[in-house]
Amino acid sequence: MKIVVLVKQVPDSGAERNLRSDDSTVDRDSANNVINEMDEYAIEEALKLREAHGGEVTILTMGPERAAESIRKALSMGPDKAVHVLDDALHGSCALATSKVLAAALKTLEPDLVIAGAESTDARGQVLPHMLAERLGAAALTGARKLTVDGATLTIERQTEEGYEVVTASTPAVVSVWDTINEPRYPSFKGIMEAKKKPVQTLSLGDLGIDAGEVGFGGASTAVVEHARRPPRQGGTRVNDDGEGGVKLVEFLVSEKFV
């Protein structure tokens, strides 16, 4: 099975993140840039499928030059190779344009299965996997907490508010996964060494036959008008439990009319 895993580099969600004051894009210079956490689960799921069914796992990333670090990190977990869509004209691209570029790259790779994270920690859009399925005419099995593969038939379990759904489709398909699906492996020393030699193909917009005007700020379908830091919340009253902590807590709730 030919599997492509979509990996996005994002600013670490555990530290302060900012938008740039000049063009309102994510400030990557001041951030610690890491693999989007959900995408590690996507990689793990692909590796498990390769172990069980054979085939090949390719990492696909669209992102600036420094995203190459995340690609190497991803490869150190075990995938075979990577494709990096890299072009200065991509800076400022909206989700719609990103999906156009990734779909074009996927068409050159002709995968049976595309696995993505369910959402990215920076955009939190959850929109890319369905956008890609729509553009590729592939089935969308999104938000999986479990994936089973039987020949060309894929079945997922998807958590809902009411319980869960079992959804099935044939390849080619786009699957997106949550962190409940598996436990990503840590790269081994051998994996890290091997990753240095694995092939990473760089594709430009020209290679994909996409005009620079269709992406970036010029081709964007959404625009930031303004942004500002939200004033941090102020802590209020704090009491030490002297044996009456629960009573004081309820006094507060009563004063605020919650009880």
């Binding site: 941090p232 802590g235 009253t237 704090r238 009491v239 439990d241 902590g245 629960g246 807590l249």
Partner: peptide, 17 residues
């Protein structure tokens, strides 16, 4: 960020509350 905080053992504070 808490408007009201109790520094204490939740196993004591919560049953009392």
């Amino acid at each position: 960020l808490a408007d009201f905080g109790v520094v204490g053992d939740l196993f004591k504070v919560v049953p009392q509350a």
